[in-house]
């Protein structure tokens, strides 16, 4: 069974985010004055062929911890659904 996977890679809480803070500092110059807490991450999409949803999720999470994130500074949110379902 094919599953569509969306991984959001985020900097862990407490890890400084130079990109996020630079974006945040630029906002007032465009007139956006009420925006705060900007954090920049990565969005990665792929498909996994697995027997069921639990094993697809286990594989995606293993992939995240060993390759797609650096656990020292990042964590990941994994979203997963059977392929073909509109998202």
């Amino acid at each position: 069974m094919i599953f569509s996977v969306h991984v959001e890679v985020r900097l862990r809480p407490g890890i400084a985010d130079p990109q996020g803070s630079t974006i945040e500092r630029a906002m007032p110059t465009l007139g956006f004055s009420g925006v705060s807490g900007v954090r920049v991450g990565k969005s990665i999409r792929f498909e996994i062929d697995a027997a069921d949803e639990a094993s697809a999720r286990a594989e995606a999470e293993d992939l995240c911890s060993r390759f797609l994130t650096n656990p020292v500074i990042e964590d990941a949110i994994v979203e997963l659904e059977p392929a073909g379902v509109a998202s």
Partner: peptide
């Protein structure tokens, strides 16, 4: 070497980009 786990920690984008 940090990515390979041979050294601890990680190297992030410089402060101030």
């Amino acid at each position: 070497l940090t990515e390979a786990g041979l050294l601890p920690g990680a190297l992030q984008k410089n402060a101030g980009l």
